[in-house]
Write a protein that binds this DNA or RNA. Structure first.
Lengths: 252, 252
DNA sequence: CTTGACATTGACGCTGCGTCAACCTCTAGC
DNA sequence: GCTAGAGGTTGACGCAGCGTCAATGTCAAG
């Protein structure tokens, strides 16, 4: 006993187009094909289809589903790795929701935060609370007014420099070199110079950050995952911290 | 003063390809195009680009961003509606995570739940706990053994009937008709017949569900969002509840 | 024989670019 | 003035998962 494509579509709650697609990509072949080219599906095919639709509802991609169908024992593994990715997605959404809420309340706080100001909210003062808590409101205010005084281009350049530095730190950390090596110390030097360019950093301005601030910053990169993420996660952050600490010991 | 496409890409942390894409779709035109066809961007363009990238990071689509750029005042509105959709997505993910976890633990519970059994886990016994709590383990066991006795086709048909009923309920609720109207009562009738087909429902089998069970079921659709979701959310669930309640009053 | 429901095989569309490919253009060094 | 190399241009395909025509064949019922 078997049924037409439309029957199966209705029984399973999907569409004939989807079934044809699954046939095209080899995910689910009809159990029989008439001389007229009509597709027919039997009970086994229906059961397989149900599994496919279930897995799809769980969010798996069609290639992943094909893998699962091919090797039944990998079923749980596939679901577990998929679970990881789902959790990541959820975290990402959480962060995005927070960011959007922040942006909205920021806008409602008056002063019609537009373009440039919105950038502030994201790139610079993203960690307002942390900065204030650790180094005082004063430092934050100074840093903030400096930032606001920049032109769009200056800001973009500063951000680009930050990104470039972070990228170099990350690849250095991944290469497995010693935090005390010349390359790492050169990066620490760049990091130092970069900080010197920001008024409001304790000891900042022309003389550059103090020893305490510099080493403390390194610790913070490790302690706070949000900062560490810029340097390739925990491992990267630890590398940066060690290199900065070594640099501070030698030069500050 | 303006800069080349590569300069802008670096300054803003994106790629030249992206900039060309934005030009193609009219999202961000270069401020100037050289006789050689080279694209050049000035500070204004850079600022606009920054806004675009920010909104994109918040998860807005490019057409939505274009709208925002066109009408500055709609900025907050756009973000708010986007926030809604983000929250929905998060809820969806939460449900999916729960479902996957359930499926995995179900599989690890031994008995290698495959195809059909997994279907059970989803469509029928999805609410095992609730059913047991409200109407006793007995009812659940009876219902469960009935379900397991069905063939794949029978199950699929039953599910299809459920889906069709739910869809009709949903559209009826959305059409704004009265729960006491003939159409709604006809649906309640179908719902009643449908339940009668399931042994294990209190009073089920040939006589059909009892008055208490029938009205209680309606209440549950409202009380538990997971049930109500089948009928188009809270509003739909309330409509179903009212219609079922009215039906029970008249016929049971 | 006609009508209508249902089947088939293409093929484009959608999102946001990455990634060639094939071919100019500009700058710097000789 | 020539050449190498970096950077620019315009296509165009690819990806995920089908929805949605379009053009056409098939089958059961009247």
């Amino acid at each position: 006993m078997d049924w037409s494509i439309q029957d199966i579509a209705r029984l399973s709650g999907t569409t004939s187009r989807t079934l044809r697609h699954y046939d095209d990509i080899g995910l689910l072949k009809p159990s029989r094909v008439g001389t007229n080219g009509y597709r027919y599906y039997d009970e086994d095919a229906l059961a397989t289809l149900q599994r496919i639709l279930l897995l799809r509802e769980l969010g798996l991609g069609l290639p992943a589903i094909a893998d699962v169908l091919a090797v039944p024992t990998r079923h749980a593994d596939a679901l577990r790795s998929h679970l990881d990715w789902l959790r990541n997605e959820k975290e990402r959404l959480d962060r995005q929701i927070g960011a959007v809420e922040k942006t909205i309340t920021g806008m409602e706080g008056g002063e019609q935060l537009m373009a440039e100001d919105m950038l502030d909210g994201f790139d610079h003062t993203q960690y307002k609370e942390e900065v204030e808590e650790r180094w005082g409101k004063d430092a934050y205010a100074r840093s903030d007014s400096w930032w606001r005084s920049l032109t769009a281009k200056d800001k973009a350049e500063w951000q680009a420099a930050q990104r470039a530095l972070a990228a170099d730190w990350t690849s250095a950390a991944e290469s497995g070199i010693d935090p005390a090596s010349d390359e790492a110390q050169a990066l620490a030097q760049r990091h130092f110079e970069w900080l010197r360019g920001i008024p409001g950093t304790p000891g900042g301005g022309t003389t550059g950050p103090t020893k305490e601030y510099f080493t403390g910053l390194g610790e913070m990169y490790v302690a706070d995952a949000r900062f560490g993420a810029n340097y390739g996660g925990r491992h990267g952050a630890e590398f940066v911290r060690d290199a900065m600490s070594e640099y501070a010991k030698r030069h500050l």
